[in-house]
Write a protein that binds this DNA or RNA. Structure first.
Lengths: 130, 130
DNA sequence: AAGATTTCTCTACAAATGTAGAGATTGCAA
DNA sequence: TTGCAATCTCTACATTTGTAGAGAAATCTT
């Protein structure tokens, strides 16, 4: 089975988000896309990407002189990993307090709150049915 | 002003949770408390704790031959830091999808869902009023 | 006071992470 | 075919994190 929970460092998050947007893509592309924000050189980007391949976060395919990268984990998987990390460590696995804390943390508009309510309603229905 | 967002490593989470439970406390105490779970030696625990002092996560007070540690950040602060990290990196700052993902992730009972609903209601009221 | 016990200090080392330069290759353009 | 441009490979180094041993210092016990 594939690795259950992925955890990304901040640099890796930056890279993989760019990859999701542009894949399949080469390292120079990613470097350019990120350069404005990060100031990273080609070498830096390349090193991180190759390490991510080693970890199974990306795949690399060599075509002539070009290495094409693709994501090996979905955004959902990665998000889930991040969530689980926080859940386990910061909240001892307790979801409700985590959601609660999230609600307190942010400036949610009334609309967003309403949206969340309907999400919960849906969820309730599903839970009941299944 | 105090450092705005704290981020803890997994080992640091383990330590600080024990500190919150026992503070003020000495390193040997923490080591004992955690030993069953972590197998860490005194040296390991001590090193982590001292590094945490250097980072401002704990404080240390020396009393004769004893070093007493206390947390320098609250559970809320630490949780918030973890949340913000996930929010920023995994969810590009968008709260709603994060809550959504959280709802999908876990097995929330009907009761918990109801609890969340009332939390949202409260929040709505407050937002409106202020 | 001497031995046993507790706690501390200092040092070390491997792995992971962030960051990047130098020089080799490959491919395209004149 | 020669040279410029794009891309790659390899190596390197500082910092952070995880982990811990060895021996010094303080304290307690008899």
């Amino acid at each position: 089975m594939p690795k259950q929970t992925v955890e990304l460092t901040e640099a890796e998050w930056t890279i993989i988000k760019a990859v999701w947007q542009h894949e399949p893509c080469a390292a120079p592309t990613i470097q350019e896309k990120l350069h404005r924000r990060t100031e990273w050189t080609y070498s830096t980007v390349r090193t991180i990407m190759d390490r991510m391949v080693a970890k199974g976060l990306l795949t690399a395919e060599k075509i002539r002189n070009l290495t094409l990268y693709r994501s090996a984990v979905t955004r959902q998987q990665a998000q889930r990993g991040e969530l689980l990390y926080a859940l386990k460590n910061a909240f001892n696995g307790a979801l409700t307090p985590m959601v609660q804390s999230l609600l307190e943390t942010g400036d949610l508009s009334a609309e967003e709150l309403t949206e969340l309510e309907s999400l919960i309603k849906q969820k309730k229905k599903k839970t009941g049915k299944k």
